[in-house]
Design a protein around this nucleic acid. Structure first.
Length: 400
DNA sequence: CCTCCACCGGAACGTGAGGAGT
DNA sequence: ACTCCTCACGTTCCGGTGGAGG
């Protein structure tokens, strides 16, 4: 493109009507005014929380459901309304929302409590203090302010190490407080999580329990049409796109977040290709792109040792039928000596393999081969074209 | 039915980088 | 200067194990 062509391109870009009116409506950070098909859950949450307005203690709530079933959005929405009413009536009520998954922010006991204290405007160093002292500061702060607090802990299953201890301490706090009071709303994606926590913690945390079921296709359709009305220009979607997208998402565990992402990315692709409308067939492209971006992104942000391990697995995937932990470790060691990376022990590499499994980059299954031992059987869980690309990139980066 | 492989996976501990308080 | 803290990342040590082959 020559210089004139380039300015023309930008001129045209500016003049062109966007397919989108407001893309933000499709992003997961957006909180819609109305939440379809969750009236029942919202009512329940509201019922449980309402006593806070009379300065009574509210029950702790434990909420679980899979990703994209509207847990966070419902809780935030209800809490927000409650806080507004409290404010209008001069009731001291504070809602604190913490996402425990945010690494380096709230994923350990120390950091979680430190984050809470920060919500009250006090500074806590990122490390250095004993955890007990941070608790003390926290107690003192809320005691002084005579606060009622509703603490929303999103994705509590992501707390590393013993989540039990942290939750135990938090649920026990009330016994130590005279003027303040805390209620906890715990949100978890992981249904198994509930079984793994200390039964004492479990019982006090889930004084009330709520389950968010997955949305079905029709419900996702409603959500999509509600949001797309605001997000897209009128008639920007090809007939049947919403239905198709909803069907996709419903098949895939009723995840509304995924449905919204799918339709957003499809829109972006259509816009980039100067389409008038978003064609249905772009949903497939969008799905591909999302998956590809996810994989590339997670891999490229891994530390070097992880990359080396993955590269070993990818190298073996060419031609071999089954890959075992031992195979990977051998190849890994070869790669290390070739590239000058300090080799880790097999124990560690085994953990790294397990982590890639959790990230969905590879599949690892523990199998027994009888006489010939017990090991993990590993397969690569990514589309072939991407796999080739990744292998090249890793080879270049590692110098192998 | 027993054995024994090739790992699995829990636990304790070490190191070194962040930092606090005295 | 010194002791004490958290936390990421690893190592060392070791008991545990499903099932093919004897």
């Amino acid at each position: 493109m020559d210089e004139k062509g380039l300015s023309n391109f930008f001129e045209n870009y500016l003049k062109k009507d966007s397919i989108f009116l407001n893309k933000g409506v499709l992003q997961s950070t957006y909180t819609p005014g109305e939440i379809p098909h969750r009236e029942e859950q919202i009512k329940q949450i509201a019922n449980i929380l309402a006593p806070a307005l009379r300065m009574e203690r509210t029950s702790n709530i434990f909420i679980y459901g899979k990703t994209g079933t509207g847990k966070t959005v419902c809780v935030k929405h209800t809490a927000q309304k409650l806080e507004e009413v409290a404010k209008q009536n001069n009731i001291k009520l504070k809602i604190v929302y913490v996402n425990c998954k945010l690494s380096k922010v709230a994923d350990t006991e120390y950091r979680l409590i430190a984050q809470l204290v920060r919500e009250f405007g006090k500074e806590i160093p990122p490390t250095g203090l004993p955890t007990g002292e941070v608790y003390q500061i926290f107690y003192k702060t809320i005691e002084e302010e005579r606060q009622r607090i509703i603490l929303i802990l999103d994705e509590i299953d992501q707390l590393v190490n013993r989540a039990s201890d942290i939750l135990y301490n938090l649920t026990r706090i009330n016994a130590e407080l005279k003027n303040a009071q805390i209620s906890i709303i715990g949100i978890s994606n992981n249904l198994v999580f509930a079984d793994n926590i200390d039964p004492r913690v479990k019982s006090s945390l889930s004084e009330e329990e709520l389950v968010f079921p997955p949305y079905n296709a029709l419900q996702i359709q409603d959500i999509l049409s509600q949001r797309t009305k605001k997000a897209f220009r009128q008639d920007a979607l090809e007939q049947g796109l919403i239905e198709k997208c909803a069907a996709y998402a419903a098949k895939d565990h009723g995840d509304a977040r995924r449905a919204l992402e799918l339709i957003r990315v499809a829109g972006e692709l259509a816009e980039r290709n100067n389409e008038e409308k978003v064609p249905i067939k772009y949903l497939d492209l969008a799905e591909e792109k999302i998956e590809k971006d996810r994989i590339t992104d997670t891999i490229m942000t891994q530390p070097q040792q992880f990359k080396a391990t993955l590269y070993a697995a990818l190298a073996l995937d060419k031609g071999k039928k089954t890959i075992l932990t031992g195979d990977i470790y051998d190849t890994y060691k070869q790669i290390c000596s070739k590239t000058g990376i300090r080799p880790l022990t097999q124990r560690r590499v085994s953990d790294i393999i397990a982590e890639f499994d959790m990230l969905g980059i590879i599949n690892a299954k523990v199998i027994s081969k009888g006489r010939y031992g017990r090991t993990r059987e590993i397969s690569i869980a990514m589309p072939a074209q991407i796999e080739g690309k990744i292998r090249e990139t890793l080879a270049k980066e590692l110098g192998a």
